[in-house]
Design a protein around this nucleic acid. Structure first.
Length: 491
RNA sequence: CGGGGUGUAGCGUAGCCCGGUUAUCGCGCCUCGUUUGGGACGAGGAGGUCGCAAGUUCGAAUCUUGCCACCCCGACCA
């Protein structure tokens, strides 16, 4: 690899992703296995994601709260399926103190300081939250509880990738409590809709909404709703999940409420989350061989201005114009950076901002100043044009909107073009081996068939699409009246 | 956690098989000057526990063992 650029997607998609994340300054590996350092530029994108989602959660009536990182080990085991799902990947705190080692070479765990009850670092917070909700809920008047928390969680993963799967990751987890099943199901579906809207409208990533098969369901859920996205290499990525938890956690933690008639009932629950994995989806959906491509709505810098000059006077003149332009752009809520760093040449800056995915670049040189123009370059399609300085701010605003739309149009087309239907296992394997993608096929609903298909094709059922009533013959068994599902090889 | 690979300056690397002066080169970094419309050029300079630990040896980047990290492929997963 040269110190410039990154490997091509067509050569090694996985390597391309890794290099891009590092070179675009999004994140790097920490010294602790499986953990990542999210760098300021990467974190700025995450903050944009977070801020927008937070607005949307609040618009739908939710409030933020914070529950502890450490959870008593015993809580996890209260819900059988839940402990089954998470026990194998929990970090455990066993001691609360260190002391100097006797040979003076460092510190050791103080064996005297063993915890009576070991604590686990949350892999998710259902247990501690439901243990708390028990205290919060007595009557139907206490319901619904609509709470979200922004937090970090730890799942001890065997194989990690920056953003896509790390041992510690950032996410939000919504946890709601309801008096009726209908209301809880509605909440689950509502939040799935919020996710779908956010991902499509802000990330410009098209998704398929559906529910998971039993195998793929969240540990402890009655039903897991999800949005599934398709990456450029033809692999699927689960972008968000929303779970209808039924009364499982209410029963496990004995959370009941008195209804209007005074009858005691168990509370109905939901939980839903998206994580820093969305960053991975963002990268793998839009970016190209020159680096990151960001949708304007999530770009920390939407417009970069690069001056081109031969002497101080020219720079001064360009700066003067640039500063007045910046003022106008700020009033239009466009984030802009004027890069007048004299140590870097324009060509270097061009490449750098392309790597970082800045949607629009303006280059201004003496020639432009003379003609009252600027050179405008779009990151998404790499087009360049010379445009008038007159009414430039509005043009930029329009172009940013255009880019946002074009990205979504393009990724939607990709999704459409890479969604196939298959009538036989052989055909499915053939398609998957050739180009990946989503495969629509019929499935008899049996877990055993699902496992068998996975064994044969390495593809899993990504989801059973919502509002899909079509039936046909099962791709494995040929059974009639099987339901239509989406298969793919997945991250 | 299994199989394979890699680890040498901030980054990328040569040297390792076959042990022997002061560890190679490029990029980046610092200073000065010239430059600036697609990753500039010259001169000078700084920068190294050769992943970590132990062992073999007169002598280890090089050989042996263990450990760690990362990458690829499996199993598991958001």
């Amino acid at each position: 690899m040269s110190s410039k650029g990154i490997v091509k997607r067509s050569e090694d998609f996985s390597k391309w992703y890794n290099e891009l994340v590092l070179k675009a300054d999004l994140a790097e590996h920490s010294d602790v296995r499986g953990c990542m350092i999210i760098k300021p530029y990467g974190y700025a994108i995450w903050e944009k994601i977070k801020d927008q989602l937070d607005i949307m959660f609040k618009e739908t009536g939710h409030q933020n709260a914070y529950f502890p990182l450490l959870i008593p080990k015993s809580y996890l085991s209260k819900e059988a399926a839940h402990v089954e799902g998470f026990a194998k990947e929990c970090a455990v705190v066993t001691h609360y103190r260190l002391k100097n080692s006797e040979d003076g070479t460092g510190v050791i765990v103080d064996p005297e300081a063993k915890l009576e009850e070991e604590l686990i670092i949350r892999p998710t917070s259902e247990t501690i939250i439901w243990n708390t909700y028990k205290k919060w809920i007595q009557s139907y008047r206490d319901l619904p509880i609509l709470v979200n928390q922004w937090a970090n969680v730890v799942r001890w993963e065997m194989r990690t990738r920056l953003f896509l799967r790390t041992s510690e990751f950032l996410w939000q987890e919504g946890h709601t409590a309801h008096a009726t099943k209908i209301e809880a199901v509605e909440e689950t579906e509502k939040m799935l809709e919020v996710y779908a809207q956010f991902v499509q409208e802000f990330m410009a990533v098209p998704v398929i909404k559906g529910v998971k098969s039993e195998n793929e369901r969240f540990a402890g859920a009655e039903e897991t709703y999800c949005i599934e996205a398709l990456m450029q290499d033809g692999k699927a990525l689960q972008a968000g999940t929303s779970h209808f938890l039924g009364q499982n956690f209410a029963k496990a933690f004995d959370v009941t409420f008195a209804d209007k008639e005074g009858n005691k009932n168990h509370v109905w629950a939901t939980s839903w989350g998206v994580s820093t994995r969305l960053m991975g989806a963002l990268v793998m959906t839009h970016s190209d061989d020159k680096g990151l491509v960001l949708p304007p709505k999530l770009a920390p810098i939407q417009v970069v201005i690069v001056p081109i000059y031969k002497n101080e006077d020219q720079l001064l003149e360009i700066s003067e114009y640039a500063n007045s332009l910046i003022k106008e752009l700020k009033s239009l809520n466009i984030s802009v950076k004027f890069d007048n760093d004299d140590n870097k040449k324009p060509g270097w800056k061009f490449a750098e901002y392309e790597m970082k995915g800045v949607p629009l670049r303006i280059a201004i040189g003496p020639r432009d100043m003379e003609n009252q123009t600027v050179e405008l370059a779009r990151r998404d399609n790499l087009s360049k044009s010379t445009v008038s300085q007159l009414d430039l701010p509005n043009l930029l605003l329009e172009t940013l909107n255009l880019i946002q739309n074009d990205l979504f149009t393009r990724s939607s087309l990709f999704l459409k073009e890479n969604t196939y239907s298959a009538n036989s296992i052989d055909q499915m394997i053939e398609i998957l081996d050739a180009k990946g993608g989503f495969i629509e096929a019929f499935w008899n609903g049996d877990s055993k068939s699902e496992h068998k298909i996975k064994e044969l094709t390495k593809a899993t059922i990504r989801c059973i699409p919502l509002n899909e009533n079509q039936t046909g013959n099962c791709i494995l068994t040929g059974e009639p009246n099987s339901k239509k599902v989406i298969f793919a090889r997945a991250y």
